[in-house]
């Protein structure tokens, strides 16, 4: 684990050279899993996350079925190799909490009433963690849900803001997260309705509102990237060429039994 740096911000630049209102680079791929109804692989700085959506599908156990709507289930899980020191596999206090708040970030957005008695299952696997995995997971899950054809009021975009060296900064990186003064993950729809808001550390009321404004600009940027990724998926899949792989040599008898 890295040591606490003397200063987080030098000459207006952060440890990795970003400005205070700049996101880490994001890479998005949609539809990466063949067996899931919808999926998304997302890299955000050092984070690498994979989201998969299954459903709507039959919900077991039956007593958890809702007669008038679908149930959203969300599982956030960290791979044991996702951090420097191996984490114990399986659910932990932290991952259960993140699963809960992430699920609640989607429940108001998904049109559950169309699929009574079913479950919509969202799985988020953190393959590599580097600060801000819950927001990365929510962004990936949002795209996986869209990819699965689940009706939603809109996409959910998430990003974190925090305070280091007494300044409000966007999208905390590992060191800032570990040694900073505050961390504030936010998720919202494109219509700026907040579906997740947590805070760790201390902010004054004035700082909090400033941080929230910064988070909104961050979420807007994330939303643009999500939108681009979705549009690109079907622009790329256009297969114009008729692939004529291995044209059979003329005269080769090819099992036409009916002649």
């Amino acid at each position: 684990m890295s040591e606490k740096p003397e200063h987080f911000i030098v000459d207006g630049k952060r440890l990795d050279g970003r400005r205070v209102d700049e996101l880490r680079p994001i890479k998005i791929e949609i539809g990466v899993l063949g067996r899931a109804d919808g999926s998304c692989y997302l890299e955000w700085g050092n984070n690498k996350v994979l989201a998969a959506v299954y459903g709507p599908r039959e919900l077991h156990p039956r007593h958890r079925q809702k007669m008038t709507r679908s149930v959203v289930q969300f599982r956030y899980n960290m791979a044991s190799f996702s951090v420097d020191e191996r984490t114990r596999p399986g659910p932990s206090r932290r991952s259960i909490e993140i699963s809960k708040v992430s699920r609640e970030a989607f429940e108001p957005v998904v049109f559950t009433k169309f699929f009574p008695k079913t479950a919509i299952d969202v799985f988020v696997e953190i393959l590599q963690a580097g600060a801000g995995t819950r927001t990365a997971g929510i962004n990936a899950a949002s795209l996986a849900l869209a990819d699965a054809g689940i009706p939603m009021r809109g996409l959910v975009s998430a990003c974190a803001v925090g305070k280091v060296d007494g300044e409000i900064v966007l999208d905390l990186m590992k060191e800032e997260d570990n040694y900073g003064e505050a961390d504030l993950p936010v998720a919202m729809t494109a219509g700026r309705q907040i579906t997740l808001l947590q805070m760790d550390g201390h902010l004054t009321t004035e700082e909090f509102y400033r941080a929230l404004e910064l988070a909104k600009t961050g979420c807007d940027q994330v939303y643009e990237l999500q939108r681009q990724a979705l549009i690109e998926k079907y622009s790329k899949e256009y297969t114009t060429e008729i692939e004529d792989e291995d044209p059979a040599p003329a005269g080769e008898p090819e099992g036409d039994a009916d002649e």
Binding site: M152, R153, G154, A190, L230
Partner: peptide, 30 residues
């Protein structure tokens, strides 16, 4: 994509869309 504004005339709302605040928006990615 979900949430996209499609029209201001709520009478045109068809399948895969929803109406919110007097506007038709997309409910689906498609």
């Amino acid at each position: 994509i979900p949430g996209d504004l499609l029209s201001d005339d709520i009478r045109v709302s068809g399948s895969g869309t929803y109406v919110a605040d007097g506007a038709v928006r997309a409910a689906l990615y498609g």
